[in-house]
Design a protein around this nucleic acid. Structure first.
Length: 459
RNA sequence: GCCUCAGUAGCUCAGCUGGUUAGAGCACUUGACUGUUAAUCAAGGGGUCCUAGGUUCGAAUCCUAGCUGGGGCGCCA
């Protein structure tokens, strides 16, 4: 029996004998009886186990059970309509499976997030992280379900890549060479001796490979880890994070945004349906108004503005920005925050100046902007970045030259434009940022089970 | 990489204009308690005041450097 199943069926379980396994969340012993709040991980709520001296031969041992201990409980279900909880377990037999020591750091009280990060192996036993990580699991499923329901093909894009031309930031190198004494060819390291016969890195994006698959399966997506070696110290950056990267053929930027909007609404709706207890808790203790926010996103139409229009909004804003908004520049974090607040809803910003965006984005007819879109949301910032891809061989080649991207290394990518090219588009969704948005948790380190950030690779 | 704040008991924090033996709540240990809900009540144990230097008769407190963490920004997505 599990706590989750009991909460669904306690009406029909009355007086039936059941066995539960779980951990002690709280314990209130008294002279001849006591109460244990037991959590077995299957459900957000705990279950109250009542035990008393007359039914337990090991009463004194159980009475001394500390928080964190694991137990096996035999007993019967008893309805308690007059008490805070709808039912409880009358214990007939309790065995300590694993005792918890005196110095167990997790107490039945509020802990700081910083403290819990340093105890990442235990923090998943707290209410907050129970809620966050169950929502994380549900969100993973919701995303697969969304795409699978629409006949998208999932592909596992490679984690190791030889290309450093993806233009998405600093990469972690992967090597089997002896870094203290690498083989040399003249003064430089001889990578022909390395495992792959060339320099290799951890991927920063599965997009290019997804594009290749989209030219066979039409609608595809990746869902996997991504690695960035930037020394970023912010609440929204991690060195290892997960991305969802759909890629759709015979599609343009509008189709891309339609897909992104539909996806965001549907996956939020799924979580709201399947994580009621967790969201209610987050709504109460983490972000007041969370449920209202999610509800309104599901029922809203996302704003869609061009980069030019975004800058105009910023220029006419009441407040002063440290970075002056410019038609030629990227939006700063403070600009994104302002726009998110201005619309009080997710907002797509489209048609960005070409020189601040990646080489593969489709050049607009004005020759100055590209068919790119970012989705900005309050709190988590940019959670989606996407574009229509440049499907014209000559234009793509020219753009690569303009942006100093090595076209020889990416000949396979250019080939896709030679053999039955299609207009196509895609985007990358930062999974962990999406989770921040849905849970209201303000730091990405608190939505990743064991987060990796610069100078932090414990656990 | 830049700016800023912080580091005192297992946790959250007070003490910091230098001055006796560094405190509180929770947790822990022991005891009381026949229905508790972060139970309550009583007693007890528990300290490298982040580290290293320095100033001083005297440093948790002042100065310098470093380490660690938070927040803001940048890079980036």
């Amino acid at each position: 029996m599990t706590v989750k199943r009991l909460y669904g069926t306690y009406d029909t379980q009355s007086d039936r004998k059941i066995t539960l396994f779980g951990w002690v969340r709280n314990h209130r012993p008294q002279k001849a009886f006591g109460f244990i709040d037991l959590n077995d991980g299957t459900y957000f709520e705990t279950i109250q186990v009542v035990y008393d001296k007359s039914h337990l031969d090991n009463f004194e041992e159980i009475r001394k059970t500390r928080i964190g201990s694991s137990l096996r409980v035999e007993g019967s279900v008893e309805r308690t309509p007059d008490r805070p909880q709808p039912f409880e377990i009358k214990a007939r037999n309790i065995q300590v499976v694993g005792d918890s020591q005196e110095d167990y750091p997790i107490q039945p009280k509020r802990h700081s997030r910083e403290f819990l990060r340093e105890h990442a192996h235990l923090r998943s036993r707290t209410n907050l992280f129970t809620a966050v990580f169950r929502v994380r699991s549900l969100l993973t499923h919701a995303i697969h379900k969304f795409f699978q329901d629409r006949d998208f093909i999932h592909l596992a894009s490679p984690i190791i890549t030889a290309s450093d031309a993806e233009g998405a930031g600093e990469m972690f190198q992967v090597t089997t060479l002896d870094v203290d004494n690498p083989p040399k060819s003249g003064k430089t390291v001889d990578y022909s001796k390395d495992f792959f016969g060339r320099k290799a890195n951890l991927t920063v994006s599965g997009q290019l490979q997804a594009e290749a698959f989209a030219q066979a399966f039409k609608d595809v997506y990746t869902f996997g880890p991504t690695f960035r070696a930037e020394k970023s110290h912010t609440a929204t950056h991690a060195s290892e994070f997960w991305m969802i990267e759909p890629e759709i053929a015979f599609a343009d930027l509008r189709d891309d945004m339609d897909l992104a909007e539909e996806m965001v609404k549907e996956i939020i709706g799924y979580v709201m349906k399947h994580a009621e207890k967790e969201l209610a808790f987050l709504n109460k203790f983490v972000e007041k108004g969370l449920l209202e926010k999610l509800e309104s996103v599901v029922n809203s139409t996302f704003a869609r503005i061009t980069h030019r229009e975004a800058v105009e909004i910023l220029k006419t804003a009441e407040r002063k920005f440290e970075n002056a908004p410019s038609y030629e520049k990227d939006l700063a974090t403070e600009h994104e925050k302002h726009l998110a607040k201005h619309f009080d809803a997710p907002v797509f910003v489209t048609d960005w100046p070409k020189h601040i965006k990646a080489f593969y984005m489709r050049l607009n007819d004005d020759q100055n902007t590209v068919a790119a879109m970012d989705l900005i949301v309050p709190q988590a910032g940019e959670i989606i970045g996407g574009s229509q891809r440049e499907e014209r061989y000559d234009v793509l080649l020219r753009r690569m030259e303009e942006m100093n991207v090595d076209s020889d290394e990416l000949q396979w990518y250019l080939d896709l434009r030679k053999y039955g090219t299609t207009p196509h588009a895609g985007f990358g969704l930062g999974f962990d940022r999406m989770l921040m948005y849905i849970t209201g948790v303000a730091n990405i380190r608190d939505v990743i089970p064991f987060p990796r950030t610069p100078k932090n690779c414990e656990f």
